[in-house]
Design a protein around this nucleic acid. Structure first.
Length: 262
DNA sequence: ATGGTAGTAAAACTA
């Protein structure tokens, strides 16, 4: 099959970001693009615009917030929308597709958590536990499976620009490190860290509210692509593309790309 | 020690 490229991008509204995402796709030609925070109900998702440039569209959004979608060159043979447990299904935060090759792609927009004392923070921690159960229920660590998304966790001190000041934030504190690690320990490899071990200063998110955040390097690495071991063994590179952040109306996140030899 | 911006959607609420 050869080279296979998978990307993840929190677009912060697909309707606002359509020109940017479309031109990025035409330049980067990924085989799969996972998007988060599409902020668009399914009946208003610009499906036709992506189909016109050769992508199948699976979207899962209800209203003006959250929302996830997976674009793929090949038509999925199976789709899962949201959790299938006894809690809130959160189909606007979790979508998964099985491609004809048998490769599974799971796309998540993990709850941010707001404040450590907020009920949403407990919801976030529980969300990771439910996600681990989801993987246990549907898959095996021997499967070819990739997990992409905005995880709202910076796993290591080198994943934020100021670990001392940011310690305690809902995306950078022990509880989320443990919760994220519990999911990872089911059988995932962090593909960016596979190819860039111990390198600081690589970020996928820059807060709109921080002036000149990109230029000043005031970012966070909270978007991730993880793969099961057999798939991670076939990953030849993984990198962050900062260029879209310099566009006229950028998202606050930037694409993360993984390249495989399949 | 708070606010800074962007998006949705029509006043706050989320990030």
């Amino acid at each position: 099959m050869g080279e296979f490229k998978i990307a993840t991008f929190n677009v912060n509204s697909i309707r606002t970001r359509l020109p940017l995402v479309r031109s990025w796709l035409e330049k980067s030609v990924p085989d799969v693009l996972c998007m988060q925070e599409t902020k668009t109900p399914d009946d208003k998702f610009p499906k036709g615009e992506f189909e016109a440039i050769g992508y199948n569209v699976v979207c899962s959004g209800k209203g003006g917030r959250n929302g996830v979608a997976i674009l793929s060159r090949e038509e999925p043979v199976e789709v899962i929308y949201g959790f299938d447990d006894s809690e809130e299904s959160d189909e606007d935060r979790l979508v998964a597709v099985k491609l004809p090759s048998g490769l599974w792609v799971v796309n998540t927009y993990v709850p941010q958590g707001q404040k450590p004392e907020s009920p949403m923070f407990q919801y976030k921690l529980k969300w990771f536990d439910r996600l681990r159960s989801f993987f246990e229920r549907h898959f095996s660590p021997d499967d070819m499976l990739v997990w992409c998304g905005d995880m709202n966790v910076a796993p290591l001190p080198i994943d934020v620009h100021n670990p001392k000041r940011l310690l305690g934030h809902v995306c950078f504190r022990p509880e989320v490190w443990e919760s994220f690690e519990k999911v990872k320990s089911w059988g995932f490899v962090d593909l960016f860290r596979k190819h860039h071990p111990d390198e600081p200063g690589h970020y996928t998110f820059f807060d709109y509210r921080v002036p000149k955040a990109v230029e000043r390097g005031l970012g966070w690495r909270v978007d991730h692509i993880l793969a099961t071991q057999p798939l991670a063994d076939r990953c030849s590179d993984c990198w962050i593309d900062l260029e879209p952040r310099l566009a006229p109306r950028p998202s606050d996140h930037t694409p993360l790309i993984a390249l495989f030899d399949l």
